[in-house]
């Protein structure tokens, strides 16, 4: 993870965006693509650039599930919540992974090494039940395989 960007860096990053042109989301995406998350200073920089208030920008950040206000964990498990995965035992996989990682859904370990959150169905339903490991599909899971994966993720690096 890169060091905290300066206020000037943030201002430069969002300098291309203009008020009242539907640029809130594009600016937020650009910040998150650059830094991995949207920091408080970034929200302030966007608000200033778009001639609006940090409260309104934060309102957008909090509305959409993709925007995060903290850096992602090194290993992010996105658990597919779709119906095909659920019918294939996806919810039991979630329970088992959470129990193994000792995390709530949306939580991450204190050392930021791993986290687990909800992912939405993107129609790769032949792979159900699946999770995404840092964006890569891991499909055709069993509960046992998911536990072993979670144990490896939890134990790795120790």
């Amino acid at each position: 993870m890169s060091a905290e960007p300066s206020a000037q860096e943030l201002r430069d990053l969002v300098a291309e965006f203009e008020p009242n042109k539907g640029h809130v989301m594009p600016a937020l995406h650009k910040v998150q693509e650059t830094y991995g998350y949207i920091s408080r200073p970034a929200i302030e920089a966007i608000a200033r650039q778009l001639n609006t208030t940090p409260a309104l920008v934060y309102g957008a950040v909090s509305f959409y599930s993709d925007f995060r206000t903290h850096p992602p964990a090194q290993t992010e498990i996105a658990w597919c919540s779709g119906p095909a995965c659920r019918l294939a035992g996806g919810d039991r996989i979630r329970e088992a992974m959470q129990a193994t990682l000792e995390l709530p859904l949306g939580g991450e370990s204190d050392d930021h090494r791993y986290g687990i959150h909800v992912g939405q169905c993107n129609g790769t339903c032949s792979e159900a039940p699946q999770v995404w490991l840092n964006g890569q599909v891991v499909g055709n899971l069993t509960v046992s395989k998911a536990i072993e994966m979670a144990r490896e993720i939890r134990g790795g690096g120790e």
Binding site: G22, V24, P26, H29, V57, G59, Y64
Partner: peptide, 23 residues
């Protein structure tokens, strides 16, 4: 226009607000 994870933006006026507003 790239969304950011909100099912309700599939509702047409939610989608419009998502582009020209904030939430």
């Amino acid at each position: 226009f790239k969304g950011a994870g909100a099912y309700v933006c599939g509702e047409e006026t939610g989608l419009i607000n998502s582009i020209d507003s904030y939430r």
